[in-house]
Design a protein around this nucleic acid. Structure first.
Lengths: 195, 195
DNA sequence: CAATAAGCGGATCGACTATCCGGATTGGGG
DNA sequence: CCCCAATCCGGATAGTCGATCCGCTTATTG
């Protein structure tokens, strides 16, 4: 029995498998975008594939959801790093939070992934940790500069972002009015956080 | 076929039916309190009753949930009215919101009921309308007094309360730390709302 | 105590998550 | 070029939960 020599050669996938993987992800993206809660049977039917195929690629609904959310998480991770180079600590912090909530209300998958404490994909845990780490650094910098009130903990960042996203979803009928609403709510919160 | 003469004689329930109704509600209250999501089969088993019995009393999970939440909603409705007699508009407004979020993080049923746009029980709609009406009046009074920033709409009250409750649930592991967390989050928001 | 209406409760259906295995497809070796 | 084996496909299937239906039981009334 041959073991893989290194960790790199773990996806010698067959062509059809790769194609189906992409197709499933595309369909899932569509469903998420139109607000439908992800149901793997549904995905299979819409993709014209068997249920087994979908379940082999994504063992659980959470796995598919996290995979769908991954590109957005990666974008946020990069966005946090660039914020550290900004000169005004408060603006850097506020801009970062703005990008986070904007992503969350644009992509319904993100809220669920962010709110769940237990991830199923290692990649998701990794990305969330990196985003949180960036947020923590930005918060520390702003606090050290005396720009943010001291009673805000690192552990409050994720809950507050999820809370604003949730409030936005409760408020808004259509996706169109979500962005302005979220920005308004966040600005109010930021005014309360500013020292 | 005899029609009821008035609207008053609609519950000539049998004794066992009344007893079971109470029992189901008690069990449901326990489940909600321990954080378990309400499942009617579960309720039936725990109450030692048949599934049919539970479903006849409460046609859907939502109906049971709203019934469980009703006492709390009634308390909030009364609480809002008393706030209107307070002399300082801002304090009255802030106190009201504080009581609302405290209720929401004490009783997990309230968040779901508050966040859902469509109620199944008329009584729930009625109570929610009354609470919202009180909140609206308190907000108007505070705004007229120049105590609250003008960019806060009546329609923002429920979403913001739900958002804070949601954030609190995302943050906290146990029920013990929920109250202080919720108060902290609300105070931050109030600081951002204060003119 | 009998008659009847109200209530009880489990069998059952439908939807969804998740698993399993016989059959088809792919890609490499002769 | 074709054949073989590893890989993958996809439907049949099990298990769970919400919800419904209907034959049986119990409470109430006279």
């Amino acid at each position: 029995m041959a073991y893989p020599i290194s960790l790199e050669d773990m996806t010698p996938q067959r062509k059809d498998a790769a194609r189906n993987w992409e197709h499933i992800l595309t369909v899932a993206r569509e469903l998420v975008d139109e607000g439908t809660p992800l149901q793997l049977n549904d995905v299979a039917r819409r993709a014209g594939l068997g249920v087994g195929t979908v379940y082999r690629h994504f063992p659980t609904t959470e796995a598919l959801l996290e995979t769908v959310a991954t590109p957005c998480l990666e974008a946020l991770a990069g966005c946090g790093e660039q914020g550290l180079t900004h000169d005004d600590p408060w603006t850097a912090f506020a801009d970062f939070l703005t990008k986070v909530v904007e992503s969350q209300v644009t992509d319904p998958a993100l809220v669920k992934v962010a709110a769940s404490a237990q991830d199923v994909l290692p990649r998701t845990t990794e990305l969330k940790a990196q985003i949180l780490s960036n947020g923590t650094k930005l918060l520390a910098r702003a606090r050290d500069a005396g720009a943010v009130r001291p009673d805000l903990d690192d552990a409050d960042l994720i809950p507050l972002m999820c809370g604003i996203a949730y409030a936005t979803y409760v408020h808004s009928a259509g996706p169109a009015e979500r962005l302005p609403t979220a920005r308004r709510y966040l600005n109010t919160l930021l005014r309360g956080l500013h020292a």
